[in-house]
Design a protein around this nucleic acid. Structure first.
Lengths: 135, 135
DNA sequence: ATAGTTATTGTTATAATATAACATTGTGTA
DNA sequence: TACACAATGTTATATTATAACAATAACTAT
């Protein structure tokens, strides 16, 4: 494959790769400053370097932001290109977060129209409850 | 009605009332420090006074937090007691936010079970798109 | 009515999250 | 090779949120 095509496939830059690797191996959502702390040994020194990589990774769907927690997790759907239809379950005790992949849920929400007939280009859904271990 | 019952109805304290009134009359979601700025003339001087009132108002369902915007709006469902099933539409251009009240949506989500049969006690859903005016 | 309890308030300081602005370097394209 | 655009590096600062502690007000149960 030609190198010129690789960017279009969203090959990651150096900082993006370092930060994605860290998030990907993290068992739970990780916060921006925890990321910063962990990658300082790799030469990433400033918050902005982290936030820029996070913005890009979210944009291309490699990670998602858990809005209620200000934390980031790697996308758990292999097919994810863009973060435009996301759903998560969050345990309110242990804070475990799982990405929900339910065809019927995503179909329902993707097709949802409000009273005015408005259709949406994107959604984010966060469910809260207790996970198996905490119940 | 006896005064001793009034707290159970969530009658608001002074600061809670001041802050609720401001949010309620605001045509769009309002942020904590914008609230602070607006209520300083009423004697509320510190962020913590605002955040404490916000926490309580969210807890009793009088307002909701729009997580993706770090901003607050008054509950638009007259029946709201507790914020445990919330859905909003957000215009990505003008930032107009509307609370969605759809019986079928809330029924679908309230009854949603994931693969493991886990049921949730609470959810928050944010739809993004363009509102009528911005389309 | 009053003692005990809980919710609310006031205050200072600080923590945690996120972006502005500008200079520079790398990468893909024409 | 030159142009355009993406990514990086750096310093400073803006924004959002909580810790800790003291005091006051309101509710509950005698």
């Amino acid at each position: 494959m030609r190198i010129s095509k690789m960017n279009k496939m969203h090959n990651l830059s150096k900082n993006q790769q370092i930060i994605f690797d860290l998030i990907h191996k993290s068992p739970e959502p990780i916060k921006a400053y925890a990321i910063l702390f962990n990658v300082q040994k790799k030469g990433i020194k400033a918050p902005l370097q982290v936030y820029r990589a996070l913005d890009k990774l979210v944009e291309i769907g490699k990670i998602h932001k858990i809005e209620s927690r200000n934390a980031f997790i790697a996308c758990q759907n292999s097919s994810c290109q863009v973060s435009k239809a996301t759903a998560f379950s969050i345990c309110e005790i242990c804070e475990k977060v799982t990405e929900i992949s339910s065809a019927s849920l995503s179909k329902y929400l993707t097709n949802f129209k409000d009273k005015d007939g408005m259709k949406y280009s994107k959604y984010n859904l966060e469910f809260f409850g207790l996970c198996k271990k905490c119940r």
